[in-house]
Write a protein that binds this DNA or RNA. Sequence first.
DNA 1: GCGTACTATTCCGCCTCCGAAACGAAAAGG
DNA 2: CCTTTTCGTTTCGGAGGCGGAATAGTACGC
Lengths: 116, 116
Amino acid sequence: MPVELRPSQALKLWHDVTLDLVRDGETDLTARQMTILLTVYLEPPPHTVRGLATKLGVTKPAITRALDTMGERGLVDRRRDERDRRNVLIQRTVAGALWVEKLGDDIVLRAKHLPR
Amino acid sequence: MPVELRPSQALKLWHDVTLDLVRDGETDLTARQMTILLTVYLEPPPHTVRGLATKLGVTKPAITRALDTMGERGLVDRRRDERDRRNVLIQRTVAGALWVEKLGDDIVLRAKHLPR
DNA sequence: GCGTACTATTCCGCCTCCGAAACGAAAAGG
DNA sequence: CCTTTTCGTTTCGGAGGCGGAATAGTACGC
């Protein structure tokens, strides 16, 4: 029972949710930041800079910069890996979890009101 | 028969599609640009700078700049309104229609493969 | 130990975006 | 007419993202 969605519905859903993000004004995450945030909160840890860079197909400095920005906003946190102190483990935060949860609820709500 | 979607599915869908956009590398539209593009292609014309600014809750220069960028990429076009020459009407393009169509297909495909 | 490999970060110049204000063109209203 | 209003655009200084090279710190084979 996969999720059934017609192209017109899919596009309207994408439009509606993105509009909500724009009108919110608070966050304005880039596509990269959004992907990193959702990866950290959806996939099982540990998450490293290198792993994220490989997954997204971008350079490591790009990941570091994105983590800097999101870290200042309290959406993610960083900690040294004590087993291998070269690594940095990206950690979840309460604020980040709440933000992601809110996004999920918004998408569900927008999907519910799509024309059939 | 609305579209049924659980929060975890919604977030995974958002993650997967955004990841595709990041890995594509070509386009990297901002959230504002994405919203403008989808508005122009989903909602009936005419579309004006002022109308888009009001809808998105941003200033008019922000819309002008976004249209500049997307215009250079051939995703939208601009034309003077001959009835009221103060207005600028935002027009669709073939390239833009193809891009939007591709996005819709991608979302549908990603939704189809979500875990139940 | 010492060089090598690997981690993440910092630095550099470049480019795009931002909001606010000023601007020119065109319509509306006296 | 001519003033006012309404468009969209341009300009300004500032903030932040970008890619890529260079850097500092850590692990590991020899």
